[in-house]
Amino acid sequence: MNSFQLVLSSLVVACASSLTVHAQDLQGDAAAGGKKNALCIGCHGIKGYHIGFPEVHQVPKINGQGAGYIRSALHAYKAGDRKHPSMRTLAGSLSDQDIADLAAFYESTGTGVTLPAQAAEGTAKAAALVTQGGCTSCHGANLSKPIDPSYPKIAGQHSDYLYVALRSYKTNDKPLIGRGHPIMGGVAKQFSNAELKVLADYVGSLPGEMQTVQRDRVK
């Protein structure tokens, strides 16, 4: 294990112990969450939907994402650790119980597919970058089985979103853009943007459990 991966492992333990508070303090109700997602489906319930901030990219798939990660992300938006303006406003309108319910609902609505135990390697360049970043150390061997509930499944996520998200971890000095996270900040800052693009394209090409469930038409 190299020095970076040793530090990464230490950070995983430290962050996991602090982030599981939100993951365990409230019981989420998936049925209740399904009745609270009117604001969510405006972006996440339209297949192929793109947004233009901070650049044009598809909104992430969240159906089938882990509940612990959705909780962690929404609390980070609410606290301002993630600086996306519309997501921060939305998260700020939610109670802790709302967040728990929404997370439970979205976790319950994945593809249901069985994934391989280990992700295909992809190109030699992609494999080298995955190894350098220690991606499987947190996200699992198939990049869809994270070692802690507060970490996301990433296999099969939209590659353009992944690229924007990875770059955001390198940004700490802008009021409306950036994500504060000690582990991902350390990982992303190792790489050039071109290398992050290779990583994002590779991860996005993998089979995954997440999907976008098309919202019902307004009658």
Results as ranks from 00 to 15, higher is better:
Q5G: 10
Q5S: 10
V7H: 09
S9E: 15
V13W: 02
A14E: 05
C15Y: 14
C15K: 15
S18D: 13
L19S: 11
L19D: 12
L19E: 14
V21I: 14
D29I: 00
D29W: 03
A31I: 08
A31E: 05
A32P: 03
G33E: 05
K36I: 02
K36A: 06
A38S: 15
A38D: 10
L39I: 12
L39P: 08
L39H: 13
L39S: 15
C40I: 03
C40L: 10
G45I: 02
K47Y: 00
G48Q: 00
Y49A: 10
Y49H: 11
Y49I: 10
P54L: 02
P54M: 03
E55G: 13
E55D: 13
V56S: 15
Q58F: 06
P60F: 06
I62K: 07
R71P: 01
S72P: 10
A73P: 00
L74W: 04
H75P: 09
A76W: 09
A76Q: 10
A76E: 14
D81K: 10
S86Y: 13
M87R: 00
T89C: 14
G92V: 05
S93P: 12
S93D: 08
D98M: 00
D98I: 01
I99P: 00
A104H: 09
F105Y: 07
Y106E: 04
S108D: 08
T109E: 12
T111R: 04
T114V: 13
Q118K: 13
Q118D: 11
E121G: 14
T123Q: 04
T123I: 08
A126F: 03
A128T: 08
V130E: 14
T131R: 15
Q132W: 05
G133F: 03
C135M: 02
C135P: 09
C138D: 09
H139F: 09
H139P: 09
G140I: 04
G140L: 10
N142P: 08
N142D: 07
N142K: 03
N142M: 01
S144G: 11
I147Q: 06
D148V: 14
S150R: 12
Y151D: 09
K153L: 12
Q157N: 08
Q157A: 11
Q157F: 06
H158Y: 12
S159H: 15
L162P: 00
V164T: 04
V164N: 06
A165E: 09
L166P: 03
Y169I: 03
Y169V: 01
Y169C: 06
T171H: 11
N172R: 14
D173V: 00
D173T: 06
K174P: 10
P175A: 01
P175D: 07
I177D: 13
G178A: 00
G178C: 02
G180I: 14
G180Q: 14
G185F: 03
G185P: 06
G185D: 00
G186F: 02
G186I: 08
G186A: 07
K189T: 14
K189D: 12
N193P: 15
A194C: 02
E195T: 09
L196Y: 03
K197L: 12
A200L: 01
A200Y: 03
D201L: 04
D201G: 10
V203Y: 11
L206P: 00
L206T: 05
P207S: 07
G208V: 01
E209I: 13
M210S: 13
Q211P: 10
Q211F: 03
Q211V: 04
V213M: 00
D216K: 07
R217P: 14
V218P: 11
V218D: 15
K219S: 14
